[in-house]
Amino acid sequence: MSDGAPIASPRPGEVIISVRGLKVGFGDHLVMDGLDLDLYRGEVLGFVGASGAGKSVLTRTILGLIHKQAGTIEVFGHNIDKLTPREHLEVGERWGVLFQEGALFSSLTVRQNIQAPMREHLHLSQSTLDGLAAQKLALVGLPPDTADKLPSELSGGMTKRVSLARALALDPEIVFLDEPTSGLDPISAGDFDDLIGTLQKTLGLTVFMVTHDLDSLFAICDRVAVLGHKKVIAAGPITELLVSDDPWLKSYFHGKRGVIRLSAGAERPAMTAGDDRSKNVGR
């Protein structure tokens, strides 16, 4: 591990995404300057930071949607600037993305949205595609009749779920989740966390999750990385971040909204997603 970001207690394991010396800016305004980050295979990395600190920008840069000014990004060991078209296609099959606003194709039905990546990348019969789309819908907890709806007919929470179903369509190795639980009720958010947790355990899924949901951070994140001052200022298991001296971290976790979670979480850091829900419904 390179120095720079004080990444605490790295988990042993294969680095699946490695970001080094990343510099991203718009015009004269630098959003990221010398940012380092590692994502290990099989972990759930929660990514937090003040609103507007550039969490989405980092995600989009890793995905290759925003041009960086300097630095290297390696995904599955490939430098994303030097991908051959063949490798580019492969990488596209190995990651799935849940965009903040869902980004569903508005002129396709839910079923067609979920089938879109499978249809483009694999040669499967229509009946298999239909079956797998129905399975993904059931997996994210939506009723079967959602399949024939158009994205414009979905509620915000349903859009998130369909978008997750689409992100999971190719059974990717990494999923990027941009604020997956924002706008969901606590029960749905809990189900969402459970689902991510289950997939991580059963499939060895690696998850990069931008979130402000403290419950998600406590429930399923193996590590939490904090973005601030154009860098990753801290990364590690949440129990380590809780005792950090950084003023922003202190107010983030020990503020009004974090304090209940903290008192519960500090005592039982290894609690499961299911039982920790009940306490914060009234938060």
Binding site: D130, G131, A134, Q135, A138, L139, P144, L195, T198, K201, T202, L203
Partner: peptide, 16 residues
């Protein structure tokens, strides 16, 4: 055990 979980959670439902 993880596959058993997966078979249950991501199982098959007969289409109506």
């Amino acid at each position: 055990s993880e596959y058993a979980t997966l078979l249950q959670d991501a199982g098959y439902h007969r289409p109506e």
